[in-house]
C-alpha cells in the first residue's frame, strides 16, 4: 500500500505540492490526471527521490517504509519504479549493460542470485519480443538515438525486467502513436496482480482506455481536487479541467 499524507514540496523555493493525500492499495492501479503545471511530475519525482525537489511536510510510505527518508536506489530496492516522462540519454553506456546492472542491483537487494550475461540476454530477449522491440536496442547506448516511442518502450522494458511492486508512470503516453501506446499498455497490464500497484500520471484520458484504472484522481494546483472511478476520466475528457476547477472552487 502506498500511503501519502499531507505531502507538500517546493522546487526552487516555490510551493508545488500543497498537501497531497492519496492511498493506493496493492493490486490497484490509480490514475492521477491534471493540467500542465498542476504538480503531476513533481509528485512522481518526489516519490522517486530526485534532488532539487524539497519535501516541506507530510509523509509517503510504501508497505511501511518511509520512502522520503530513503536514497533513490533504496526506494528502487524496496520495489518502487519510476517510468520517466523524458527518459535520460546515457551516451557510452550500452543498454544491455545498463539493464543488467540495474536488474542485478535489484536482485542483490532482494537477496536473489545475480544473472550472468547469458542468463540476462535470454531473459531480456524474451521481454523484448513481448514488447515488439528490435534486438539491436540492446546494443545501442541507453536511449541515444531512440525515437520517442522507443524511449518509452525502453522504460516499459525496464519495468518488465525489474518487476517492481509499485510503478509510477509519468506521462508514459506522451509522444506515442496508437500502436506504441497499445504495446506500452499491454506491458503495464501484464504486471497487474495482487502484489502490484501503479500510479499512472497522464494529461489525457486516452491512455486510460488501455490501462483501465481502479480510481482516478484530479490534481490541480498542487492538490487532489476530486477522486472517482474510471468514469471520472471520461468526464474530464468531455468537460475539460476548467469545469472541474470551477466546480471544485
Amino acid at each position: 500500500m502506498l500511503k501519502i499524507e499531507g505531502l507538500t514540496a517546493t522546487v526552487d523555493g516555490k510551493p508545488i505540492l500543497k498537501g497531497i493525500d492519496l492511498e493506493i492499495p496493492s493490486g490497484e492501479v490509480h490514475a492521477v490526471m491534471g493540467p500542465n503545471g498542476s504538480g503531476k511530475s513533481t509528485l512522481a519525482y518526489v516519490l522517486a527521490g530526485r534532488e532539487g525537489y524539497e519535501v516541506t511536510g507530510g509523509s509517503a510510505t510504501w508497505d511501511g517504509h518511509d520512502l522520503l527518508s530513503m536514497e533513490p536506489e533504496e526506494r528502487a530496492a524496496a520495489g518502487l519504479f519510476l517510468a520517466f516522462q523524458y527518459p535520460v540519454e546515457l551516451p557510452g553506456v550500452g543498454n544491455a549493460t545498463f539493464l543488467r546492472t540495474a536488474l542485478n542491483a535489484i536482485r542483490r537487494a532482494r537477496g536473489e542470485p545475480e544473472l550472468d550475461a547469458m542468463q540476462f540476454l535470454k531473459l531480456a530477449r524474451q521481454r523484448m519480443r513481448e514488447l515488439s522491440m528490435p534486438e539491436d536496442m540492446l546494443k545501442r547506448s541507453v536511449n541515444v538515438g531512440f525515437s520517442g516511442g522507443e524511449k518509452k518502450r525502453n522504460e516499459i522494458l525496464q519495468l518488465a525486467l525489474l518487476r517492481p511492486k509499485l510503478a509510477v508512470l509519468d506521462e508514459t503516453d506522451s509522444g506515442l502513436d496508437i500502436d506504441a501506446l497499445r504495446i506500452v499498455a499491454d506491458g503495464v497490464n501484464a504486471m497487474r496482480g495482487p502484489d502490484f500497484a501503479a500510479l499512472v500520471i497522464t494529461h489525457y484520458q486516452r491512455l486510460l482506455d488501455y490501462i483501465v484504472p481502479d480510481r482516478v484522481h484530479v490534481l490541480m494546483n498542487g492538490r487532489i481536487v476530486r477522486s472517482g472511478g474510471p468514469e471520472l476520466a471520461k468526464e474530464l475528457e468531455s468537460e475539460g479541467y476548467a469545469a472541474i476547477q470551477a466546480r471544485a472552487a
Binding site: 536514497e71 533513490p72 536506489e73 528502487a76 546492472t101 540495474a102 542491483a105 535489484i106 537487494a109
Partner: peptide, 17 residues
C-alpha cells in the same frame, strides 16, 4: 539520478558514467 532510480548505488552509477 536515472541510474540510481533503477537501484544502482551512487558510487556504481558514477563509475558507469
Amino acid at each position: 539520478f536515472y541510474l540510481r532510480s533503477r537501484g544502482i548505488p551512487e558510487t556504481q552509477a558514477r563509475a558507469m558514467l
